[in-house]
């Protein structure tokens, strides 16, 4: 039973990693028990991220400790109130052959963002895979990321409500009197494909990551900067052993 439980945790952990834009995956590779990271992200809006990785040496996946990660991402421009993107997850390293390894994982995300149209609280899961060459100092990996948000809470602003006014001619009425607030189901995905390069010393390291992201949609739009749809993302992250 204990073995089964352990396998279950290992399988879950394998699907788990620290998502965000997957910046702190290097953290689990450092020897310490606690690793702090800080970095700049552009996905594509600019934000700063701080994260903490706690390695459990007693819990190993394929001979490598699993790291549990908490990350908070704060946008730098155009915030309305306290916007944040909180991620909680774990990650580990799966050896494949020689230096070819894969970092993999899933994180739970909770995002609060607000804009002219309203306030949003969304939640979902982010999965990341980093197959690549993991050397002693240098790491080069391909990044596959998928962020799924199945639920969002929306509180529309007066600005969004005004769009519904004055639509029906005098003396008539219709069924749609305003945008809908509350918890709403959705099937929002962001798919990422990129490259990550990292350099590490014994107690600290840096990681640069960049790539393309695509938001699947029925309209067929991948690039529409007018409304903030840009198919690129990137980040620069540093991490340091604190324990």
């Amino acid at each position: 039973m204990r073995a089964l439980f352990r396998v279950l945790i290992l399988v879950l952990s394998a699907c788990i990693a620290f998502a965000a834009s997957a910046q702190h995956y290097m953290g689990v590779l450092l020897p310490g028990a606690g690793i702090v990271g800080i970095g700049l992200h552009a996905d594509p809006a600019l934000s700063v991220q701080a994260d903490y990785t706690h390695r459990l040496n007693g819990l190993q996946l394929a001979g490598h400790p699993v790291g549990f990660v908490a990350a908070v991402n704060i946008p730098l421009f155009g915030t309305h109130g306290l916007d944040f993107d909180l991620r909680l997850g774990a990650g580990s390293l799966l050896p494949v052959a020689g230096n070819f390894k894969v970092v993999t994982g899933v994180a739970w995300s909770l995002s609060r963002t607000a804009d002219l149209n309203g306030k949003y609280l969304s939640s979902g899961l982010k999965m990341d895979l980093y197959p690549g060459i993991y050397g002693r100092r240098w790491i080069g990996a391909v990044h596959f990321g998928s962020h799924w948000r199945p639920v969002v809470h929306i509180a529309h602003s007066d600005y969004a409500r005004q769009a519904f006014q004055d639509r029906y001619p005098a003396g008539t009425s219709g069924s749609f009197d305003g945008p809908q607030d509350g918890w709403l189901r959705q099937n929002a995905f962001i798919q990422q494909l990129g490259l990550a390069v990292a350099w590490r010393r014994d107690t600290w390291g840096m990681q640069l990551q960049t790539g393309f992201q695509y938001i699947p949609n029925k309209v067929g739009l991948a690039f529409l900067p007018d409304v903030g749809l840009m198919p690129v993302y990137g980040s620069l992250q540093t991490f340091i052993k604190v324990r």
């Binding site: 600019l46 730098l76 969002v152 099937n187 929002a188 962001i190 938001i215 699947p216 309209v219 409304v227």
Partner: peptide
Amino acid sequence: FNESWSQLARQSQALGPRDH
């Protein structure tokens, strides 16, 4: 670095622009 654009871009974090 425009704030309006940053808000537009960040809406993807909450709402997937899946349809019109």
